[in-house]
Nucleic acid binder design. Structure first.
Lengths: 236, 236
DNA sequence: TAGTGGTCTAGACCACGGT
DNA sequence: CCGTGGTCTAGACCACTAA
């Protein structure tokens, strides 16, 4: 059992919901009823319920009451690892191979390149992440030199661009897309794939407010890479 | 600008962080300073900051103050769609083909099957989800008949097992794994894949507290399927 | 229109952990 | 030790909305 009162109230209510005793649509006790039951102030009850609302377990309607939410589409929190950190935490040696790095104008026919460039140049970086000397992931990245001019003078052969950017432009927003694709001839060659060509492709667009920062495509050999996501209606 | 005071305070602080004015490690004003600045009570300031803490933007340390958090590993909220709903919302016709359905004992050598079965039988279901009559995903599912005895009398040729389970056993916890794999001969045949065999494999273990409910493996042809996840340090 | 949740106040005591 | 955040109280007014 938890220490503080609002956490105890919260976990009692949550238990009813997760066990199925209070099914979706069930009206949980009113705040004033919980105040009476736990002999506490309304703010305390409110804090407990608010946390269940933000976890998506409860919906509240004025004048009507608070109800167990209808379960939505399954959603899960996906941790997208920093590649170097992930490799090192498994006790392997991380190394980085810079394949190419050039400054260029956006390709005219690519809408997203012009958006990203925002009237300036792009830095195009291609590199290979290795674990114990074996290919782990292929990275193709575009960086807006309007948004991140300092990047022009970094050579990215020591620190991977992702880690460098995270240190210099933290707290951005991002949109991810995950697909399975067959590696091309050249990609299979770089990743040292033989028969099995299936790869997990992770694409990410990174923004800071309206400003586009970077766009990256990571290619992981299917055999060596898992994304694990956990869903628990626990929140915090 | 937002309506209520605690939301205004919150978004003012958030703006400082996301714009980079207050970098990671920066000590934000003490509660009593914000109380003075906004001429409000401490509870109101506390509510604003608490919400930024739960969004992961701020860490608090007693006696020391509240600090802009060091950006963690990128994390994103992944929406795992209900297959039927997803197909129908794109205006396509959903249909379901039940390939096999049998009740059986757990395979002795498979640890997880014995755990899932919990001393009873399993229901093994294999089915194909179709969009406009074309294969969209292959589903292989095990259901614990100890946890969900009603499932024994459902034939799952009309309603997909996932949708049925969500209606009957809502609010569970789940663990997901996402990989890219090459489809086997048989799987490629069922999914009508020709040359490109890369598939996205989504595995999910579903629990209710200590009780194991179901285990499912979904195979999506790489060409036709995206998972999209959005990360924004906004929370709620 | 009556009762719910949403918000806010002006206090209070306490635990913890930097100084 | 002492100031911070963590928690809690016993009120209050208001907006919304279901009945």
């Amino acid at each position: 059992m938890n220490s503080t009162l609002h956490l105890r109230i919260r976990s009692n209510i949550q238990k009813q919901i997760l066990s199925g005793s209070w099914p979706p649509g069930y009206r949980i006790p009113f705040e004033h009823e919980l105040v009476a039951r736990y002999r506490c102030s309304r703010m305390t009850v409110n804090k407990a319920i608010a946390s269940l609302v933000s976890a998506g377990l409860i919906v509240r309607r004025r004048r009507a009451g608070s109800f167990v939410a209808e379960p939505r589409v399954q959603s899960a929190v996906l941790e997208i690892p920093d590649i170097r950190a992930k490799i090192e935490e498994r006790g392997q040696t991380y190394s980085l191979q810079l394949l190419s790095r050039r400054r260029r104008k956006p390709a005219g026919r690519r809408e997203y390149e012009r958006t990203l460039a925002a009237g300036g140049d792009l830095l195009a970086v291609r590199c290979l992440h290795l674990a114990n000397g074996r290919p782990y992931a292929l990275e193709e990245r575009l960086i807006s030199l309007v948004a991140v001019p300092e990047a022009a003078s970094i050579d990215f052969s020591l620190e991977p661009p992702g880690s460098w950017l995270l240190r210099h432009i933290p707290w951005t927003e991002a949109e991810h897309r995950i697909r399975a694709i067959d590696a091309s001839e050249e990609e299979a060659d770089l990743l040292e794939l033989s028969s099995h060509r299936a790869c997990l492709e992770l694409s990410r667009r990174t923004l800071r407010g309206p400003e586009h920062i970077t766009r990256v495509r990571l290619l992981f050999p299917g055999s060596g890479f898992d994304l694990v996501a956990h869903f628990a209606p626990l929140g915090k």
